[in-house]
Amino acid sequence: MLEIKNLHASVESKEILKGIDLTIKAGEMHTIMGLNGSGKSTLANIIAGSEVYKITKGTVLYNNKDLLDLSPEERALQGIFLSFQYPAVIPGVNNTYFIKAALNAKRKYQGEAELDAMDFMVLIKEKLKMVGMDESYLRRSVNDGFSGGEKKRNEILQMITLEPTLAILDETDSGLDIDALKIIANGVNNYRKKDNAFLVITHYQRLLNYIEPDVIHVMIDGKIVKTGGKELALTLEEKGYQWLTDEATVEL
């Protein structure tokens, strides 16, 4: 589904990604762990189409087609979704109107009839329940005055409404209390299917108590330095990242 080869990217001539290789197949859930500043969010934003970064080398294929050629909206229409670490706050734009516009853009792209206001309300109310949000969120402006946890729930609400093929969760678990974490994990687990995939970026092993990734990658200084199974997270929990840094240095 997603095939990244030797991806290098920089911002203001500072190289942030220094050769990423990553392949994600349908039905899989991958997790990237690593310290702050290792380039995890950069990778997530590049996949979603951010124009802040300059791609200097490498390729990204999505369903065997060049992803880097596509605009952010085209990527979204083709099934890519990013749950932002810091979702934008948009005063004056109604949350319901926004999600409805996004869903209908996608339906239109897929050749389906757009949902009218009534049908959309039925759908969104059902989705709201799944992430433990009440209907008052629909009347508010997009993320305006939302707490950190509310913003993250709003991201997951959008994910389960838009039904992406590849969902990237960028530290969606950060700053959440345990109840909110369970709700988010639940949203993710319910949405796991054999024909879609996840890329979950996190600092903490904590989230992995609730969702079970197939593959774990560790990213340090713009590179994936270690890839393993579920047990890798436990090792990281126990030993931290230092041993991997040492290992990487030795390899050099």
Binding site: A48, E73, A76, I90, P91, V93, F98, A101, A102
Partner: peptide, 25 residues
């Protein structure tokens, strides 16, 4: 905010007009 809206499949021009409408609201 423009990138956020676009990343949800909303066309660039519509994203901008949504933001302006929101600004004027």
């Amino acid at each position: 905010a423009i990138f956020y809206l676009r990343s949800r499949g909303i066309d660039l021009m519509i994203a901008k007009s949504l933001l302006l409408e929101g600004f004027a609201k």
